[in-house]
Amino acid sequence: MSEPISALNHASYDGIAKVQECGLQGMITLRGDLSDKVLAKAVKDATGQKMPGQREAFVDGESGVCWMSPDELLVLVPYVEVEAKLAAMTNALSGTHALAVNVSDARAVFSISGSSAREVLGKLAPVELSSKAFQPGQIRRSRLAQVAGAFWMDDDQTLRVVCFRSAADYVFNLLKVAAQPGSEVGVY
């Protein structure tokens, strides 16, 4: 068995914010009726988190659950546990109209940290990122320049960004340019 490696293998960049590829992250796409108690329990068993409401993200480190659409969740678990967690989830959901798929290797994850983190992402996504409008506990799906991406805040100065693995290099380059030294805009 070959050793799994994330898209950019922890590449990082220091500018007005620190940009880092986070490495391997277990991710399960879960679709179904989010009001279903069986589904809510499966999520709780996998992550320890309750069912998120519209655009909520309950993430603690490598575990958590994010609201992606009215019938879709992104379930985060440690990479080494994803197969076991998925099997338990699939088992718990047998007989329920739901679908759970391991998408870990189809994604890349970045963190943007520092006092200008909001600003770096704000240059790339058509989203209001002031602290009034966007806070830890929320998730937003949008675009980063020309590719799809989703992001939430781990704390007030740290954003985590998820994109497709095939776009990882593109997104890292975007983030590097947006984080160039001296490029503060001073909006947020």
């Binding site: 519209q54 655009r55 659409s69 009215p70 058509p126 937003r140 799906r141 949008s142 675009r143």
Partner: peptide, 11 residues
């Protein structure tokens, strides 16, 4: 109406 976001045209 599904995610409640005020989305601008490029989204």
């Amino acid at each position: 109406p599904y995610c409640g976001v005020d989305a601008e045209e490029t989204e």
